[in-house]
């Protein structure tokens, strides 16, 4: 089996599991919807204010929501020692990691497709900048979240209270990515500055950390 087929096999299994249970997507969707509603109550923003703050709220909601899904992504594999079997399998460990990243990426993208219109409705948003650039910012930002998130979920898998540890190590490392996502989104919504720099930075962040994760995943998977 070549690399792409191994990735696809893992991915297909994860997608089928999710299709049947819908655990991750349902949890994330309701959670992020709650965050949107809560923030709306907390700030009660006017149209001009919401343009300034909704970029931040969108990404913080997605960050929190994706943590709930990321925590489940590897615990599934612990049942019946599936993860040990995968460690013994001759297929490259990075293929397993890549497929998990793709699966999580797809889940969070589904959330965004549902959440995006709701956001526009609840916060009365209308982009003053080039709205189509969001089609770049959203996937790049999501990738930045799920690459490191999937990696750190694997890293904290066999620790005590892992559900708590994941955000504690993921958030500090993700701060530059979060900054770039929020700045790019706000720049697009308000058209006060140029989002180009931040989009390029997100792209660079994705490339750097995806490479690093793929290189180091075997080390983490085989850690005692």
């Amino acid at each position: 089996m070549n690399y792409a087929r191994v990735v696809w096999a893992h991915l297909e299994k994860d997608l089928r599991l999710e299709w049947r249970s819908k655990d991750a997507i349902n949890g994330m969707l309701f959670f992020s919807l709650l965050v949107v509603v809560l923030f709306s109550f907390a700030f009660d923003p006017t149209m001009a204010v919401s343009r300034q703050i909704s970029g931040g709220i969108l990404w913080v909601a997605l960050l929190f929501a994706s943590v709930t899904a990321l925590n489940q992504t590897w615990t599934r594999e612990l049942r019946h020692q599936v993860l040990d079997a995968q460690r013994m399998a001759p297929s490259p460990p990075s293929a397993l990691f890549l497929s998990k990243v793709l699966a999580n990426f797809l889940f969070v993208t589904v959330i965004q497709i549902v959440l995006g219109p709701l956001f526009v409705v609840f916060y009365n948003l209308r982009a003053l900048g080039q709205g189509w650039l969001m089609a770049l910012v959203l996937p790049l930002g999501t990738l930045a979240l799920v690459v490191n998130g999937t990696f750190f979920a694997a890293l904290s898998l066999r620790t005590r209270n892992r559900e708590m540890l994941l955000p504690l190590i993921l958030f500090p490392i993700s701060i530059p990515a979060l900054l770039a996502m929020v700045q790019a989104t706000t720049a697009i919504l308000t058209a006060e500055s140029d989002p180009g720099l931040w989009i390029r930075m997100l792209g660079g962040y994705d490339v750097i950390f995806l490479t690093l994760c793929l290189l180091l995943f075997k080390t983490v998977l085989d850690a005692e």
Partner: peptide, 10 residues
């Protein structure tokens, strides 16, 4: 924190 939360050889 990571060092504190993990145990054993890992």
């Amino acid at each position: 924190l990571l060092r504190r939360f993990t145990a054993g050889g890992q």
